[in-house]
């Protein structure tokens, strides 16, 4: 399989006659791309680390001696640990339903899954304020029952789940659609129960796609700023996630600490990128997105 879907399959002989006039165009295009990448991605990344280490390694490490920094890291991890599995379950259910069954409203469901991608994260956060804020729809009921959603962990988790829920479904829907239902049907005729089929046939077929999407979902869950900012309330040591903590430090002109904590997010991004590239390279045939590269 991996031979068939080998990512590099550009025919070597074909572009020969187009090469003479194409060489200049290609050079310009590559030049523009590389310049943009350098200006907007590599340079800022470099700046983050330069700033973080501008007062030496000691000042860098001091940023992590702050209890508030640790509480922000803890909160971010907690949120990711709740939000990612939630979206894996949702994504599996949605893509299973969409890929393997026909039902009315299917097109609408696919559109709705994309909603978080098209809505500004700030609006996503506002939705929860409107629903659960003290002036909100369920506000008074929640206050009566002493349930705190806004400015607390549940609100941050809800906002994160909302923002990240397309990732798993979007990767798995095309993958499952392409694989069709023949293998599952074969397993059923052999007497396997639905759950057994899922465990032994469906899941192994989508495992790399699932891992890929979990990776992206996790990166977004940990890095989300806008939606979380609206619902968090910015309570130091309580409801600040890593991105919010970075902002607070920066606003207090504590640049070294701010960039030091930011470098943590940058490292997370780099690790994600490396793992993502590895998955795309090694399992291109078993990913929906990897196919395009």
């Amino acid at each position: 399989m991996s031979e068939i879907f080998s990512p590099i399959s550009v025919p070597a002989a074909k572009p020969a006659q187009a090469a003479s006039e194409g060489a200049a165009t290609r050079g310009v295009l590559i030049g523009i791309s590389v310049t943009f990448l350098a200006l907007f991605l590599v340079l800022p990344l470099f700046a983050v680390f330069t700033q973080a280490f501008s007062k030496g390694i000691g000042a860098f490490l001091d940023a992590f001696r702050e209890p508030d920094a640790w509480s922000a890291i803890r909160l971010t991890l907690t949120v990711a640990v709740i939000a990612v599995p939630f979206n894996v379950v949702f994504g599996l259910a949605a893509s299973w339903a969409i890929a393997k069954f026909e039902f009315p409203g299917k097109a609408l469901l696919i559109t709705l899954i994309d909603l978080p991608f098209s809505v500004s994260p700030v609006v996503s956060g506002m939705i929860y304020v409107l629903l659960f804020g003290s002036q909100g729809l369920f506000g008074s009921w929640l206050i009566d029952h002493g349930i705190q959603i806004l400015f607390a962990l549940p609100g941050i988790v809800l906002a994160t789940v909302f923002v990240t829920f397309p990732f798993v479904a979007r990767e798995l829907i095309p993958l499952m659609q392409e694989q069709g239902t023949a293998e599952e049907e074969a397993a059923l005729t052999l007497g396997a129960s639905g759950l057994h089929v899922f465990r032994t046939v469906t899941l192994p077929n989508i495992r790399w796609g699932l891992l890929y999407s979990v990776l992206l979902c996790n990166a977004r869950a940990m890095g989300e700023f806008g939606a979380v900012s609206v619902v968090s309330g910015h309570i130091r040591g309580l409801t600040n996630t890593i991105p919010l903590h970075v902002e607070i430090l920066y606003n207090e002109y504590n640049f070294v600490a701010s960039f030091a904590v930011a470098s943590l997010l940058a490292v997370l991004a780099l690790i994600t990128l490396v793992l993502k590239s590895f998955l795309e390279w090694r399992f291109a045939g078993e990913l929906a997105h990897g196919r395009a590269h």
């Binding site: 293998e183 397993a187 005729t189 007497g191 032994t200 077929n205």
Partner: peptide, 14 residues
């Protein structure tokens, strides 16, 4: 308890 053979085999790839 039927045995079904599919046109495109539908073997379990993994």
């Amino acid at each position: 308890a039927v045995g079904f053979v599919f046109q495109h085999y539908a073997l379990f790839k993994h």
